[in-house]
Design a protein around this nucleic acid. Structure first.
Length: 874
RNA sequence: GGGCGCAUAGCUCAGCUGGGAGAGCGCUUGCCUUACAAGCAAGAUGUCAGCGGUUCGAGCCCGUUUGCGCCCACCA
């Protein structure tokens, strides 16, 4: 027994050292070789604040599988890793830490804060990068990037300046999403909507002329303090004569007009809408159309400001309560209805978003979106599964300008300098010392930083050296496939596409592989607040990375969410243990032997059957890998390795390996070793560690990582042997089945009498039938009459087997059994007859299928005849 | 209001361009057979959500209904 391989596989014993060896050996780093085809995946950079979670485990496993397959196919393969500075997420964490230490952002000042932030990054930012290694990720760490490193910063600066110069970046007073907790503006994509129970308040606004009042309905009474008009639909008969009249805004001394605008739906509420341009996106638009004043009543911290009369300094929530109470007291409330509505919340802290008019930086999207839509429309960029392109179109075709400024410190500072003297803004690649307009040196840099997604949008080329013309950029851009979850199509995929087209002149990748989300056993999203997350590192510790990787892929449909629980791990652990033991079997038998080379001898028919199957499955797997059907590929590997190699082939090799014929033993072992080798390669993308460990033990080259992936090979097509051995398997299965039905103990060897025209086939394979079906001795007979004892009968399409079992045979039972068989056959024959008598089928179905049916029918009729004859004998 | 997905064995899910329904777990029976009890062998289980259509043929294509789920959207 080989000492190196323990009885059960223990991933802990080898995963870590194997990874270290890989990384040290430089296998992850591709050569820029013009003779090779490049294949590149840009790793979606995890946040530096991140801890590896199941979502990471899934996406990086998929990427690693694709990369490893391509690497083995001989592509020059780059998987470029890195991390994202995650502006808001990180800043929130650092502020929390500072607060705990009794410090605040403000007390430290910008520079002091950034110093602390970099310290924090050094200390904790590397966690996830280390954890990625535990998964087996074969990314090129020598090219590891960070969205705020020098390379990426240079790219960000360049892109900002270019867009500004083209007029595609502008600063303006617009209504934006404001998070009163994070104290920053957010883009539309960063707002999540939650259904909340609330009320619809009906408030009376009296006409100034004393002719009664108008009732408006609102979900946000506190914003009435910023109302500047009430709008109705121009076609609304109810209000037609009211348009132009003035109203007195309750609780204030303001007088506001009734205006007409198409936006208003007459059928909702009272058909009259209060207009607060400063705190509602629609009202803002109406305000623009009607030239209305913008009165901001809520300050950045979510409290009412000096425009809010006596409500100043109350929070939004407090102000709502007091406004409603005061309105009630004064008789301005007509009624209050329960109402459920969508409230926008910050995607980071879940605080209710406050729409606020504010001066921010924007990217003008219209021009950028067009070609980005086009490349997906014309399939230059393909979404896989295809349906996700709809999600993409839906977003891109309705896109609004992108608010890119954030009132934060952690991030890329906006490269714009304001002149205190003339107000001009200087935007440039180098930090300016004076205003480019008036020459004043009295300038200061914009305080804001960029949306974190602005830098991630450049990831496919910033990491390769853009704006410099590097050989990496030239070789690997556009990249091959982007792999990510459907949840960040908007945040990231869309923005990479238009950024790539705009800055590189070409889309950044030709395929976008979208996968689902890992959910818990009940189908809920895994989240910190629910506490239902599973820690992938714990799973790796317990089962090994290979088992985790395989479990995440096995049988998963493309783009589908995965309900995951730990119990999915065990069957895979057992599978890899099976592989491990098959390798032990191989190893212990080849040890110390000199095996002949494949090709230098004629393989046995069993070997040919196996080689044929291996060849077929290799071919199918390549197709599955390149079309990203990893769920199918993994299931196929499971079935092939366990179901064919272990259950059948290894058993088939035993007669030769444990036999006396030294030559046939060596040949068999040579093929067995080859089959193991190829199987390991096929499995390697999914289970890199165990396959490498076994590879090493089998004494192959220095690493399986760079071994050539098996592809279809003409020389290994053995149709005839394949067909024959499949039939031998059928015979063995039939005998086993019979034994089980008859309660024949496994230890009891039985004698077979076979009647057949294909004596050769049985003779050459008799040893396998004997071994695997527990038989001893096969005799050929010309008819069952040659037997003079009680026996059971098996009929296959080419043989009749008679098995004398003495007292175990009960004629009545045997008759029953045979009748069941006959019933089945009759059904089949009926089916075949009806198909073949159907003119439509015969004339329209593919010829080979019709032919197949004919053969089947003939065979079944033949079997029926022979079975019936046997029954008559009984 | 638009768009998308899912409904297949008791449970979790596969099923690629339409050609006799599959896997894992669980269950039943028998086995410590010299790689493996994390195993071996044998077995049972399905109106592929309902209805209609296309087709020689539908789990798969088209239409429709029902029940879940997700995404987007300015009905205050």
């Amino acid at each position: 027994m080989n000492k190196k391989l323990a009885k059960n596989f223990e991933p802990k014993n080898f995963e870590k050292s194997i990874y270290e060896k890989w990384e040290k050996s430089g296998y992850f780093t591709p050569e820029i070789d013009p003779n090779k085809e490049p294949f590149c995946i840009m790793m979606p950079p995890p946040n530096i604040t991140g801890q590896l979670h199941m979502g990471h485990a899934l996406t990086y496993t998929i990427q690693d599988i694709i990369i490893r397959h391509r690497r083995m196919l001989g592509y020059s393969t780059l998987w470029l890793p890195g991390t994202d500075h995650a502006s808001i997420a990180t800043e929130v964490k650092i502020v929390e830490m500072l607060n705990k230490q009794g410090m605040t952002k403000e007390s430290l000042g910008r520079e002091g804060f950034l110093e602390k932030a970099y310290e924090w990054k050094e200390k904790y930012g590397g966690t996830i990068v280390k954890q990625l290694r535990c998964l087996g990720s074969s990314c090129d760490w020598t090219k590891e990037a960070f969205t705020m490193d020098e390379r990426c910063s240079k790219a960000v600066r360049e892109v900002f300046v270019r867009l500004y110069e083209k007029g595609l970046i502008y600063q303006g007073d617009r209504i934006i999403n404001w998070c009163p907790s994070c104290l920053t503006a957010l883009s539309d994509a960063e707002v999540e909507y939650e259904n909340q129970d609330s009320h619809l308040w009906y408030i009376k606004y009296p006409y100034l002329d004393g002719s009664g009042y108008m009732v408006i309905a609102t979900t946000r009474p506190e914003t009435m303090l910023g109302d500047v008009a009430v709008a109705v639909n121009p076609n609304d008969k109810k209000y037609r004569d009211k348009v132009g009249k003035m109203l007195k805004l309750p609780l204030t001394d303001r007088e506001i007009p009734v205006i007409a605008d198409d936006y208003v739906e007459s059928s909702f509420g009272t058909g009259a809408v209060k207009i607060t341009p400063a705190h509602d996106p629609n009202d803002f638009e109406i305000g623009l159309r009607h030239n209305l004043e913008v009165i901001k009543v809520i300050a950045d911290d979510g409290k009412m400001n000096e425009n809010a009369f006596e409500y100043v300094n109350l929070t939004r929530e407090e102000a709502r309560v007091k406004v409603v109470k005061d309105l009630e007291k004064l008789g301005y409330i007509e009624k209050i209805e329960d109402y459920e509505h969508n409230v926008g919340c910050c995607y980071r802290c879940h605080t209710s978003i406050e729409p606020i008019v504010s001066k921010q930086w924007f990217v003008s999207m219209e021009e950028l979106a067009k070609p980005a839509i086009e490349v997906v429309r014309d399939k230059s960029v393909k979404f896989i599964p295809e349906r996700f392109s709809k999600t993409y179109f839906n977003w891109m075709e309705n896109i609004k300008d992108w608010c890119i400024s954030r009132q934060l410190w952690w991030g890329h500072r906006i490269p714009a300098w304001h002149c205190r003297d003339c107000g001009h803004i200087t935007v440039s690649r180098e930090n300016p010392t004076k205003c480019e307009n008036c020459g004043s040196t009295n300038i200061y840099q914009d305080e804001d930083v960029l949306d974190t997604w602005f830098s991630s949008a450049l990831w496919p080329f910033s990491t390769l050296g853009f704006p410099d013309k590097t050989k990496e950029l030239d070789y690997f851009y556009p990249t091959s496939v982007l792999v990510t979850g459907y949840d960040i199509i908007f945040f990231w995929v869309a923005r990479m596409i238009f950024s790539g087209i705009e800055n590189m002149g070409k889309y950044p990748f030709s395929e976008v592989l979208i996968h689902g989300i890992v959910r818990d056993a009940e189908g809920r999203k895994m989240s910190k607040s629910l506490g239902n997350g599973i820690d992938p590192l714990m799973l790796i510790e317990k089962y090994g990375a290979d088992v985790l990787r395989f479990s995440l892929c096995m049988g998963v449909a493309p783009g589908a969410d995965i309900k995951f629980s730990e119990d999915k791990m065990e069957p895979i652990r057992n599978f890899l243990n099976k592989l491990w033991n098959a390798s032990r079997y191989t190893l212990m038998n080849i040890e110390g032997l000199e095996l002949p080379k494949l090709g230098s001898f004629e393989p046995s028919n069993i070997d040919k059957w196996m080689l044929h199957k291996l060849n077929q499955v290799s071919d199918e797997l390549n197709k599955n890998f390149t079309s990203y059907e990893l769920g199918l590929a993994s299931a196929k590997l499971y079935d092939f390795i366990w179901g064919e190699v272990c259950d059948w082939y290894i058993e088939f090799t035993k007669p030769a390996i444990y036999g006396d014929d030294e030559e046939s033993k060596l040949k068999t072992l040579a093929v067995l070793k080859y089959v193991m080798q190829q199987s390991l390669k096929l499995l390697h993308p999914f289970a890199p560690f165990i396959t490498e460990e076994i590879w090493q033990n089998l004494g192959y080259s220095e690493t399986i990582m760079l071994a050539s992936f098996p592809v279809f090979n003409d020389e290994f097509c053995f149709e005839k042997e394949h067909y024959e051995i499949e039939h031998v398997k059928d015979i063995i299965k039939a005998i086993r089945n019979l034994r089980a039905q008859m309660d024949v103990l496994p230890s009891k060897k039985i004698q077979l009498y076979i009647q057949t025209d294909k004596k050769d086939l049985i003779e050459t394979n008799s040893v396998y039938i004997e071994k695997l079906a527990g038989c001893k001795g096969i005799s050929f007979v010309n008819s069952s009459y040659e037997l003079n004892e009680k026996f059971a009968t098996i009929v296959t399409s080419i043989v009749q087997i008679y098995i004398p079992l003495g007292d175990l045979i009960d004629v009545k039972k045997e008759l029953e059994r045979l009748n069941v068989e006959i019933e089945k056959l009759n059904k089949e024959i009926k089916r075949g007859n009806s198909m073949l008598s159907n003119q439509g089928f015969v004339s329209k179905a593919p010829k080979h299928l019709v032919e197949e049916e004919r053969k089947k029918l003939a065979a079944n009729k033949d079997k029926l005849e022979r079975l019936s004859a046997r029954i008559k004998e009984l």
